[in-house]
């Protein structure tokens, strides 16, 4: 059975390879998007924007989305299935940088194009399109340092311990805060990306350190909004205790507009559409020109080049009063 499938796969791939050289405009590609989970808003945006990519809309790409349900094993199974079903390319948003390496390599050795998006795969041969979480951590920490003018007590609300995003963001935060001895980290605990948990945690901290907390660094927007809520219930505002975070979710953009939080947007559209362009470049060859608007939007930060670079690192966009409305429009889908 297994032998038969691999034979079929090899045969199909040979066929495929020959057909690519002949590629005319009528050629369609089967692309699968394996995302770690669809319960959070960010990934929902990521998928929504992917479906808006011109190549998907005009039918060049047949897109299927797989929900990994926050489980590394589920994701690996999905990738294996895609290889068996002879997908041309896989856009992979791993739950963990390392857990998928083996499966991804297997897929690539079967000549399936794999592009990581949003979160890196811990293997240098897998191209990556997305933001740099370490840089995000640096940015939000720097914003806090600026707000406190280099002096004060801060607390850090962490994401789920051990998740790549949490590790990288914290790395960036600690790096910046380490350079400013006037800033002291007095509490650090996880709220698992969850708003209600962050709310409870911040309330308790405010009781434990009355007037002792000068700033809150939350590793994502939802937790930041929970912290804002806790501050309010203790009669405080973000003027007294600034809150910084990263992600740029619609709620947070609204809050940023009201100066309740400082946040940095990672562009879901840029991540998903960019990744698809990079994948199509590999499938269609050097004549392919990227179709997404995002290359134009971030032209000064990211260059397409010939589309074969291993890393396309997208910039974090500071959310300000001036761009809040536009960003909100962009992020919440132009409905």
């Amino acid at each position: 059975m297994k032998v038969a499938t691999s034979f079929a796969a090899v045969a199909a791939l040979t066929l495929l390879a020959s057909s690519i050289t002949l590629a005319a405009d009528g050629k369609t590609y089967k692309v699968g998007a394996a995302v770690y989970g669809l319960k959070g808003q960010f990934m929902q945006n990521w998928v929504r924007e992917l479906k808006e990519h011109p190549a998907v809309k005009d039918g060049t790409v047949q897109l299927t989305v797989f929900d990994g349900n926050y489980d590394a094993l589920t994701q690996n199974n999905q990738i294996e299935n895609m290889v068996t079903q002879r997908y041309d390319a896989i856009l992979f948003v791993p739950i963990d940088t390392k857990a998928g390496v083996g499966t991804v390599k297997q897929a690539m050795s079967n000549d399936v194009v794999v592009i990581a998006s949003n979160t890196k795969v811990a293997d240098a041969s897998v191209p990556y399109v997305g933001n740099d979480d370490v840089e995000g951590g640096r940015l939000q920490a720097q914003a806090m340092v600026d707000k406190l003018q280099g002096k004060g007590n801060v607390v850090i609300i962490q994401g789920p311990i051990g998740q790549s995003a949490q590790i990288d963001r914290e790395k960036g935060e600690l790096e910046v805060l380490g350079k400013h001895p006037g800033i002291k980290i007095i509490e650090k605990k996880t709220a698992n990306w969850d708003r209600a948990q962050a709310l409870t945690l911040t309330e308790d901290w405010l009781n434990a350190h009355p007037k002792g907390i000068n700033g809150v660094i939350a590793q994502n927007d939802d937790m930041a909004l929970g912290a804002v809520q806790a501050l309010k219930s203790h009669g405080l505002t973000s003027k007294d205790v600034p809150v910084t975070s990263i992600d740029g979710m619609p709620d947070a953009i609204q809050a940023a507009k009201k100066d309740e939080v400082t946040t940095f947007l990672q562009d879901a559209q840029a991540q998903s559409q960019g990744a698809l362009d990079v994948a199509l470049r590999q499938l269609a060859g050097k004549d392919y020109t990227p179709k997404s608007v995002i290359w134009e939007r971030y032209a000064k930060d990211v260059t397409w080049g010939d589309g074969t670079a291993k890393n396309y690192i997208l910039p974090w966009v500071p959310v300000t009063n001036a761009n809040a409305d536009a960003l909100y429009q962009q992020v919440s889908g132009s409905k």
Partner: peptide, 13 residues
């Protein structure tokens, strides 16, 4: 009560 407390109703709550 939870959605009022977190100022929005979250599907993953």
């Amino acid at each position: 009560v939870l959605s009022a407390r977190t100022t929005s109703a979250l599907p993953q709550a």
